[in-house]
Design a protein around this nucleic acid. Structure first.
Lengths: 147, 147
DNA sequence: TATGAAAAGGCAACATAGTTGCAAAATCTA
DNA sequence: TAGATTTTGCAACTATGTTGCCTTTTCATA
């Protein structure tokens, strides 16, 4: 890997953490890098497996929790009861998430993607119900698996 | 409680179980009754608390699993990683769920409802993605809590 | 309504997931 | 670079979910 590129990512990570008033630590750098390195979402298990050799389980939990609070990542509910995390777009900040995009879970490769260009639809609710947040998860076959 | 009504529910429960090729046992009767008695969805924890004194934890797990397989109940994904279960409408059978309705989670009372009259919208996906199933969960304030 | 095969339940033990308190280590401010 | 503050690691614990095996219950049929 060219040194320049590495430097860029490192700088970008540190800047993002500082912008969120978080001190720059090894575990945060590493976990953030995992998210930046790949397009889809990560389950807690994935992260623990990829970062767990270097860091304690508890640290992973706490780091993810902090990232969610700071609006760096958001959670994606899935049917199999395994929460997944994905990077938020830049507009999210201070726990105030603006993620009105939908999520896509591939039934073949099991990857989860944020489809940032697909906005959650307006849902007409029965009288008396008041919507605050709409979560849409589509299951199907993703771009890569649809050979 | 009038004897007639009790008899009716018992009969209804036994009939439903038999229709699904399930033998009629105490735990299945009890757990099914919990679902029939109340409008919203139940988390595993709720069921274990309400039925757990009489039945083993493992039995509760296996019963719920069986009910899902047979299309008696379906699962509802939520953001807090606690799967909830709700009765299917009659059309569901043999693991072949037809639940195209949306789900509503109240942020105040934390109850979950199936809004059977609200159909999941069509979602326009980017090129290459193929939808198989769409899950919509709306969070907000429910009928009863909106004083 | 008695009986035996098949299904379901209970128990124990285990595996995984998530939480809490506290002392040690790293980070940041100045 | 020193000290206050934050973060981490460890240990212990609770909660959640699974598996194997033996006992009990259910149900079809005689």
């Amino acid at each position: 890997m060219p040194r320049q590129a590495t430097q860029d990512i490192e700088t970008r990570i540190a800047a993002l953490l500082k912008r969120c008033d978080l001190s720059v630590t090894d575990s945060r750098r590493k976990i953030l890098q995992l998210f930046l390195e790949q397009p889809g979402a990560l389950a807690h298990g994935d992260i623990e497996r990829k970062a767990g050799e270097k860091f304690d389980r508890v640290t992973v939990y706490r780091t993810l929790q902090t990232f969610v609070e700071k609006g760096i990542i958001h959670t994606i509910p899935t049917a199999d009861n395994s929460i997944r995390y994905a990077l938020c777009k830049d507009e999210c900040s201070g726990g105030h998430h603006h993620d009105h995009h939908i999520h896509f879970v591939c039934s073949q490769c099991d990857n989860t993607y944020c489809l940032d260009d697909v906005v959650t639809p307006d849902i007409k609710l029965p009288k008396g119900y008041q919507a605050e947040h709409v979560e849409v998860v589509v299951e199907g076959v993703c771009k890569n698996c649809k050979a």
